[in-house]
């Protein structure tokens, strides 16, 4: 579902490159984890995949489409859940979702039904007409995910979807992701919560300093590195020094 080859990116006025020849690939219909310390290049990679940021060089293929020539097709097939709550805080969940759904060209009746179903699935039906700014952190995260699901993307990309949420919300989100995968969709997911990644992902790629460090199944990586958890593998490969 994703093939990245020799991707380079240095932001203007940045002292160091964000990506220094990153190459990695993930197969179809899996939950893949893109892991790395702060500043490793995870968000830059996702931004390039979505067409928000232009790479300096290298190539990206998403679901068989080359990013350089098929960005519009890729946009139709992917759903991206950004790290920030990318919703209008003064609008209600329904108003936000109606707008996003209409921009995706979903018909009114179908859209209404989808919104109703997803709000129910994510436990937000009672707060459907409440402004997003009055939501708790967990509710905001859940609404943020729904907004990326309305067009039924084949590949769902989530940038730290469970950051700062309570245990109940986290469980609901993870259960939904597993269910979504079972329906035949692919998922790429970034997180700092390595226990969560170990539990959820079929495959993980650890990147650091804009390069791939290691890629494989969590269990294989633990065996190869004589570790009892993915966190130990991560610290072993990326070091203990602080990253700000």
């Amino acid at each position: 579902m994703l093939e990245i080859s020799h991707l380079h990116k240095t932001y203007r006025n940045a002292a160091e490159p964000s990506l220094s020849g990153l190459s990695l690939s993930f197969g179809k219909n899996i939950i893949a984890g893109l892991l790395g310390p702060n500043g490793a290049g995870k968000t830059t990679t996702i931004s390039i995949i979505c067409g928000l940021v232009k790479a300096d060089s290298g190539s990206v293929k998403v679901l068989g489409y080359d990013l350089a020539t098929g960005l519009e097709e890729i946009k139709k097939l992917i759903g991206v859940v950004p790290q920030s709550i990318a919703l209008y805080p003064t609008l209600t969940a329904v108003e936000n979702l109606e707008y996003i759904g209409k921009l995706y060209g979903i018909g009114s009746r179908e859209l209404k039904e989808k919104i109703r179903l997803y709000l129910h699935a994510f436990g937000l039906e009672k707060s459907a007409h409440k402004a997003i700014r009055h939501y708790s952190g967990g509710m905001k995260r859940r609404a943020n995910i729904i907004a990326s699901l309305l067009h039924a993307p084949e590949l769902l990309i989530l940038d730290e979807p469970t950051a700062g949420v309570d245990v109940q919300s986290r469980n609901m989100i993870l259960a939904f992701l597993q269910d979504y995968h079972r329906q035949g969709h692919s998922i790429i997911y970034t997180s700092h919560l390595l226990e969560e990644a170990q539990q959820l992902c079929h495959e993980v790629a650890i990147i650091d300093h804009g390069q791939l460090v290691v890629k494989g199944k969590p269990s294989n990586l633990m065996t190869e590195n004589s570790a009892t958890s993915l966190e130990q593998v991560f610290l072993h490969l990326t070091g203990y020094s602080l990253r700000d």
Binding site: K75, K76, S148
Partner: peptide, 18 residues
């Protein structure tokens, strides 16, 4: 700042109509 522009820009089609 809140990322809603980013979400809009990820929607297929020209940003011009938006």
């Amino acid at each position: 700042e809140d990322g809603s522009l980013m979400r809009i820009r990820m929607i297929p089609g020209s940003y011009f109509s938006i």
